[in-house]
């Protein structure tokens, strides 16, 4: 099933639709990108009775970076975690509406959440390497999915670490425990670990909130490197970060997707009053 930007039906709340890809001059347009990779259609998430995310309609365009901002408790993390069904861990959590990934419903009857998560990788707030060696951390995913050959694994580990810009720092101590790395290195290791299973979408849940400014800069550089190869969604509470790294920004407030627009546009000419108040720091 193919969907292009034009073919998509107009969402009901008009302001959340991204119609044109408006990029500032320093950001290159990505060839082959810009196709709706994920589409939320009247998508709501409930914790028991409580509606944490309310009827979201949005298209996430492939190969671009989308940032999700909003005050804490606005449902941005919940939304992100629902994309690869991490919320399944919470028994009281359920959804309505549809969340389409390449046109197929993520919450459909025939979805295998294990295969889904292989396609949609996730990096968490706090770096969470396993208490194993660096090599075993990266190789964990590929091994799960049936790669046994040592040579192939070596290749995957090196490529993933290179992609995560970590190879030069750790190539001589791959057999050391990953918990011995610094926080920033651990987080890049987590990115590399996710890349090793070759996902299409990369979900980053406040990936720099536990890191110092230097490590944060490295992660941000890494996101720029990965832009164009993966569809990236990043939840952040830091608006500067959102404006630095993303092409599109979604602003959530109390579970509602208030505005969804190209980043350059949202931060300079917000359409919604609420967005303006938020980005100008009138509330947080």
């Amino acid at each position: 099933m193919q969907l292009s930007a034009e073919a998509i039906e107009t969402p009901k709340t008009a302001q959340t639709a991204v119609r044109d890809i408006y990029l500032p001059p320093e950001r290159k347009k990505i060839s082959g990108g810009g196709v709706p990779h994920l589409s939320a259609k009247n998508f709501s998430i409930y914790y028991g009775e409580f509606e944490a995310v309310k009827k979201v309609n949005a298209d996430i365009l492939s190969k671009y970076v989308t940032a999700i901002i909003g005050p804490s408790g606005c449902g941005k993390s919940t939304f992100l975690r629902s994309i690869n069904r991490m919320n399944d861990l919470i028994t009281s959590c359920h959804t309505t509406g549809a969340l389409l990934f390449d046109g197929e419903d993520v919450y459909g009857k025939f979805t295998d959440e294990v295969l889904l998560r292989k396609k949609i990788g996730m990096v968490f707030q706090k770096p969470n390497p396993f208490p194993k060696s660096i090599f075993d951390n990266i190789a964990y995913g590929p091994r799960l999915h049936g790669v046994k050959d040592r040579k192939t694994l070596d290749g995957i580990v090196e490529t993933s670490l290179r992609k995560a810009a970590l190879w030069d720092e750790v190539c001589d101590r791959l057999d050391k425990n990953a918990l011995g790395l610094s926080g920033g290195q651990q987080q890049r290791l987590c990115v590399a670990r996710t890349l090793a299973v070759e996902p299409e979408i990369l979900l980053l849940d406040e990936p720099t909130s536990a890191l110092d400014p230097k490590a944060t800069a490295k992660i941000e550089d890494l996101i720029q490197e990965l832009r164009g190869s993966y569809t990236i969604m990043i939840v952040t509470h830091n608006m500067q970060q959102a404006s630095r790294v993303s092409d599109f920004t979604m602003f959530f407030y109390e579970g509602v997707l208030v505005e969804h627009a190209p980043t350059a546009q949202l931060f300079t000419k917000p359409k919604d009053r609420m967005t303006e108040d938020y980005i100008t720091g009138r509330f947080s």
Partner: peptide
Amino acid sequence: MNGDSPATAGRSSAFIVS
């Protein structure tokens, strides 16, 4: 690059099982 080429069709159902 695997953009909106036919490869996507195979990919799209990667997490859908019979």
